[in-house]
Design a protein around this nucleic acid. Structure first.
Length: 467
DNA sequence: TGAAATGTTGGGGCG
DNA sequence: ACGCCCCAACATTTC
């Protein structure tokens, strides 16, 4: 066996609880950490602007942490097989390890790379670093995928095993010679315009930031069920972007809530665990229905009478910019633009508004979220949009149309959330801050649609496809 | 992980 | 005292 192993980092940008890294460290003298930016394979779902900003920062931190352990991160761009070959030639590596991803095209790429490398005589192994239950493991007894969340989650609970933990290496021996590496800036992850600068006010990408976030959340997780629907509070974990890039594993999160690794006890922690399970369910669905990002899962919705782009264009722009004249919707869309994140309750509200009141195809919303969310994840994003649009596997019934005014009054009762993101409305009192302003004011637009009439229109559109 | 329309109940004002 | 109406308040149904 060769003394040197390449650890190909992908969406597992952490040193702790990293099975591929741990495997390499145990079985080989030297480890070469490699990251390859390969947007072509992921296209059209390569990381968007917010995702690339996050990735840039996370790679910088991973490199720094590796350097603290006598190592470093080798960066490359383009075809991963070529990058691995280059590294191998310089270092004489005899093994390549990585942690799995689950989207269709990267999986096909990984399969062919695995085959290719094995043919060349290398040892190759891949590991699970991202899921409590990999898609093919969580199927029904007859081998079919689950289409409903509750039985999926019940099955997860029944077969629950404390997640394994892989210790963080203290020291990583460097190869005799380091291969060439791109400068981080050369990956071109940061855009020219100024926008993402503000993101650093809200986020600390990287493993340490993830751990800090988890520590903070673990203390309040017991009250999660009381706080999670309130966008005006800090009741959610905000771990989603860290989870997406694998700066922390779901197993680490579970163990922070329940050190034994058993199912967390108590209502708040349990409901939070079920949210982790929704993430698992989303990966499960995307694995079995790879066309889900483009196509409604329920066939009837492929004939849904959405409006046409020429028609909905201006409304879509108003939605993106947070200028619909519906305070709760605009607050959410502005929070997204400013911070790269939106509270989940508000994601449902703005998604319902786009797909039902505006009758815009859900794919347009999913695409905008993809570019602007720091936690953009193909499985979760796709599943979330199909869920709200009513066209997904275990989706909300289409006729559940959120009324953004009532939702605001219910979940932002003092109007603090709206006040924060729509400063034009700051002077309105809690009693009417969620009401659209008829005709608008010089600062804030009037509603672009009538909520009552468009609700009716949505239900009529739904009538057209159900039978 | 809705909202609106419709139905039911019960207390109070009033002739 | 009684029936009638009004209308919250709540429950049920429908989309």
């Amino acid at each position: 066996m060769s003394d040197t192993a390449i650890v190909w980092f992908r969406r597992d940008l952490r040193l702790a609880d990293n099975p591929a890294l741990d495997h390499a460290r145990q079985r080989h003298e030297q480890v070469v950490p490699l990251f390859v930016f390969d947007p072509d394979t992921e296209a059209p779902w390569e990381p968007g602007a917010a995702g690339r900003w996050w990735l840039h920062r996370s790679l910088a931190e991973l490199d720094q942490r590796l350097r603290g352990r006598g190592s470093r991160l080798v960066l490359a761009a383009g075809d991963p097989l070529e990058a691995i070959e280059r590294v191998r030639k310089v270092c004489g590596a005899g093994a390549v390890y990585w942690n799995r991803v689950y989207e269709q095209r990267p999986v096909e790429r990984d399969r062919s790379i695995k085959r290719e490398l094995r043919e060349r005589g290398l040892e190759v192994a891949s590991f699970n670093a991202s899921l409590l239950c990999e898609p093919w493991a969580g199927v029904k007894s007859d081998g079919d995928p689950y289409l409903v969340f509750t039985p999926f989650w019940k099955q997860m609970q029944k077969r629950w095993q404390p997640p394994a933990h892989h210790p963080e290496p203290r020291e990583l021996e460097a190869p005799a010679r380091w291969p060439a590496s791109l400068e981080l800036d050369r990956l071109g992850l940061l855009p020219d315009h100024e926008w993402p600068g503000k993101l650093s006010d809200y986020w600390s990408p990287g493993e340490l930031g993830a751990r800090r976030r988890l520590d903070d959340f673990a203390d309040q997780a017991a009250r999660y069920h009381e706080q999670r629907d309130r966008p005006d509070r800090e009741g959610t974990s905000r771990l989603s972007p860290h989870l997406h890039w694998g700066e922390i594993s779901p197993g680490q999160i579970v163990r922070a809530l329940e050190p034994s690794g058993e199912l967390p006890g108590g209502r708040g922690r349990m409901i939070f665990a079920s949210e982790l399970a929704w993430r698992e369910f989303s990966h499960h669905l995307l694995w079995f229905f790879p066309r889900m990002p483009d196509e409604s899962l329920k066939p009837a919705f492929r004939d849904f009478p959405w409006r046409e782009p020429e028609d909905y264009g201006p409304d879509l722009v108003a939605w993106q910019r947070g200028r619909t004249g519906i305070p709760m919707v605009d607050a959410g869309m502005r929070e997204l633009w400013a911070t790269g994140w939106m509270h989940n309750r508000v994601r449902m509200i703005v998604a319902s508004f786009l797909t039902k009141n505006l009758l815009v195809p859900w794919q347009e919303g999913a695409r905008w979220f993809w570019d602007t969310l720091v936690d953009a994840d193909l499985a979760s994003n796709t599943q979330g949009w199909q869920w709200t649009a009513g066209c997904g596997a275990d989706a909300a019934p289409y006729f559940r149309v959120f009324n953004p005014v009532l939702q605001g009054e219910k979940f932002d009762p003092r109007g603090d959330y709206v006040r924060r993101w729509c400063p034009e409305l700051a002077r309105r009192d809690a009693k009417n801050i969620h009401q659209p302003i008829d005709g608008g004011s010089s600062h804030y637009p009037g509603p672009i649609v009538d909520l009552k009439a468009t609700r009716r229109r949505a239900l009529e559109a739904w009538d057209a496809i159900r039978s």
